[in-house]
C-alpha cells in the first residue's frame, strides 16, 4: 500500500496479531539491525582506526555489556507482549546487594554473586506473579514495582560506594584463554539464549505474544509462560547489575536508572515488535551495540559537545522509526 493512501483512506487496521507477515520478518527480524551495526562499525573504524585492536574492542565490549544483558532480558518479556519498566531498578538493586555483601563479608565473592542472582530472580518473579497470575497491566505494575525496587536499592546502599576485592574487577577486565572475560560472559549469555530458543517454552512464549487467547485455547499454560519470561528478564537484569560491579568496582543505587528505556530502545532497534510474538534475542544484542556505537561515533566525530545529545536522539529516532517502517514493508 502506498504511503499517502494510508492517510487519506481510513483503512481498517489489519489484524496485527494473527497475520501472515513475510517469512523474512519472522525468521530474521535482526537483519536490518545487523546492517545498521555494520555501517556504524565501519564509520567507527574510519574515525578511530584502532577500533578493531584487541584492547579497544575489549573495552568497548565491556562498556556495552551491562545494557546488552539487560536488553536480552527485556526481549523475553516483550516477546510475550508484556513490558518490564522495572528492569533498570532491578539492575541497581542487584548491583548494590552484591557489593554490600561482598564488601561486608570481607570479600565473599561467591556469596555476593549468588545473592545478586537470587534478588534478580525474585524481583522478576514478583513482576510475573502480578502480571501473569493477578492479571495486572504490565506497564503499571512494573512501574510500581520498579519504584519499590529502587527504594530497596536505596535501603541496601543509600549512597554510591562500597568496594569489591581487586581480584574481582581485574578478572572482569582481564582475559581467559586469550579471550576477554566480558566476551566469555556474552558468549555464555548467548549460549543460554540459544538453549532457551530450543525449548518448547520459547515456542509457547511467541505464541502467547502473538495471540494470547489462541495460545490459551490451544492449551499453552499462558500464565506460567509469562511468569517465566519475567523471571528470565530478572535473571539477565541481575547479570547486568553484576557486570556493573565488575565495571565500576563499587555499588550505586541509581546506576540502572537509564537502563529501562535504553533496554526497550535496544529491543525495538533489534527488530522485536512491542506487540509481541516477533523478534529475537540476537536482535536485541545488536540493538544494544548500535546504541553504544552511536555514542562512540558521535564522540569520535568530534561533534560539538552541546550538539551530541540532539544528534544522538535524532539518529536513534531515525533508526527506531526506520526499522519499524522497513520491517513492515518487507513483512506485509
Amino acid at each position: 500500500m502506498p504511503a499517502p493512501d494510508a492517510i487519506s483512506t481510513p483503512s481498517p487496521e489489519p489484524p496485527r496479531r494473527s497475520p501472515q507477515p513475510g517469512l523474512s520478518r519472522y525468521r530474521r527480524p535482526y537483519l536490518l539491525a545487523a546492517a545498521v551495526l555494520i555501517v556504524l562499525a565501519a564509520t567507527n573504524v574510519a574515525l578511530e582506526p584502532n577500533f578493531l585492536t584487541f584492547g579497544v574492542a575489549a573495552s568497548n565490549l565491556s562498556a556495552f555489556l551491562p545494557l546488552t544483558l539487560a536488553a536480552i532480558g527485556q526481549t523475553y518479556v516483550v516477546l510475550a507482549s508484556d513490558i518490564d519498566l522495572s528492569n533498570g531498578a532491578i539492575v541497581s538493586l542487584v548491583n548494590v546487594t552484591a557489593v554490600t555483601i561482598i564488601d561486608g563479608m570481607h570479600g565473599s565473592i561467591g556469596l555476593g554473586l549468588a545473592a545478586g542472582l537470587g534478588v534478580g530472580l525474585a524481583a522478576g518473579a514478583v513482576n510475573g506473579m502480578f502480571v501473569a497470575y493477578l492479571r495486572y497491566q504490565a506497564i503499571v505494575t512494573t512501574f510500581a514495582t520498579g519504584v519499590a525496587f529502587s527504594g530497596l536499592a536505596l535501603w541496601v546502599l543509600p549512597q554510591a560506594g562500597g568496594q569489591v576485592p581487586a581480584s574481582f574487577y581485574t578478572s572482569y577486565a582481564g582475559s581467559y584463554l586469550f579471550v576477554p572475560t566480558v566476551a566469555w560472559i556474552l558468549i555464555a549469555a548467548s549460549a543460554f539464549a540459544a538453549l532457551i530458543a530450543r525449548l518448547r517454552f520459547y515456542h509457547s512464549l511467541r505464541a502467547v505474544g502473538g495471540n494470547m487467547q489462541a495460545a490459551f485455547q490451544t492449551g499453552v499454560a499462558v500464565a506460567r509462560v509469562r511468569l517465566a519470561a519475567y523471571v528470565i528478564s530478572g535473571f539477565f537484569a541481575a547479570l547486568s547489575g553484576l557486570a556493573l560491579v565488575g565495571e565500576t568496582a563499587s555499588g550505586d543505587p541509581l546506576i540502572g536508572g537509564g537502563f529501562t528505556l535504553s533496554s526497550i530502545t535496544a529491543v525495538v532497534l533489534g527488530g522485536t515488535a512491542l506487540s509481541g510474538g516477533v523478534g529475537s534475542v540476537l536482535g536485541s544484542v545488536l540493538g544494544a551495540f548500535i546504541l553504544g556505537l552511536i555514542s562512540n561515533v558521535i564522540f569520535f566525530a568530534q561533534a560539538p559537545f552541546a550538539w551530541q545529545g540532539l544528534i544522538q536522539g535524532a539518529i536513534i529516532l531515525l533508526a527506531l522509526s526506520g526499522g519499524v517502517v522497513i520491517a513492515r514493508r518487507s513483512g506485509d
Binding site: V140, A144, T145, V147, A148, G151, L154
Partner: peptide, 12 residues
Amino acid sequence: FGRQIVFGVTLL
C-alpha cells in the same frame, strides 16, 4: 527508600 517502597506497594 521507605517512601518509594510504600508508594510502589500502595499503587499495586
